[in-house]
């Protein structure tokens, strides 16, 4: 199957600091990849570098065979990358509906479908972006990215800081997007065990490098690599 995204020897960071010294990764059409790792190992920098808001020192990126290495973030988004940033970054002086439509591109994902997936957003459609709960902001950020009708979705810690019941609701939606819609997705997550259940494959990062990669099912069956790289076996088992 053709790669929807390929990253070759990416070297990236912020300012003078190199966070990712050299990383290569490929994602197949319709594949869902979990990016795991402790805090500060470069997971967010990796996603930010794919959309292009970090400083790139070297390497190249291609989206569905097209070189996007030198494209600015807006052109990458238009080429088909749907970004859900870590801080959600909801536009606060736009209404919920404007947040969804201002950057929308035509395609199968429409306002009606987003509202059907997240009925709460429909109730809040006239609220301003700064009047939402954390869960609503996250739903809006996911909906906003889908409205771009992307070829690949980047989710940066979608469940961060949310109440457990909202986390489950959101994960169910993400599973639907991945499984039913076949959306190629990269998810950065702290809750390893929960996200492994909705992804095909996982990579574990440490100091900006891939230190382990495996099928998600294999990691669920034998969590030893999770334990050695993340030290989260107890937390993962409890969840």
């Amino acid at each position: 199957m053709a790669d929807i995204l390929s990253i070759e020897a990416l070297r990236a960071g912020h300012g003078e600091a190199v966070v990712i010294p050299g990383l290569s990764l490929a994602l197949a059409e319709g594949e869902a990849l979990a990016v795991l790792g402790r805090n500060g190992v470069g997971k967010t920098t990796l996603l930010d570098s794919i959309i292009g808001v970090t400083r790139r020192f070297g390497g190249r990126l291609a989206l569905a065979g097209r070189d996007i290495t030198r494209l600015p973030p807006e052109a990458r988004a238009q080429a088909g990358i749907g970004w859900v940033p870590q801080e959600r970054n909801i536009f606060r002086s736009l209404t919920v509906e404007e947040n969804l439509t201002a950057t929308a591109r035509s395609g199968p994902w429409t306002l009606a479908r987003i509202y059907e997936m997240f009925p709460r957003l429909r109730e809040r459609r006239a609220n301003m972006g700064n009047q939402l709960s954390g869960g609503e902001q996250q739903m809006l950020a996911v909906g906003r990215a889908l409205m771009l009708n992307p070829r690949i979705l980047l989710l940066d810690e979608p469940t961060e800081g949310l109440a457990p019941i909202i986390v489950n609701e959101l994960l169910a939606s993400i599973r639907r997007i991945i499984r039913d819609e076949g959306m190629a997705t990269i998810i950065v997550e702290q809750h390893a065990r929960k996200i492994l259940q909705v992804t095909d494959r996982a990579v574990i990062l440490d100091r900006g490098e891939i230190v382990h990669q495996a099928a998600s099912a294999a990691l669920l069956a034998d969590p030893a690599p999770l334990e050695s790289h993340l030290g989260v076996i107890a937390k993962g088992a409890a969840a």
Partner: peptide
Amino acid sequence: AAVDDQRAARGLG
């Protein structure tokens, strides 16, 4: 949107 958050706005096209 561009005024609220330039970085996010660019990342969303």
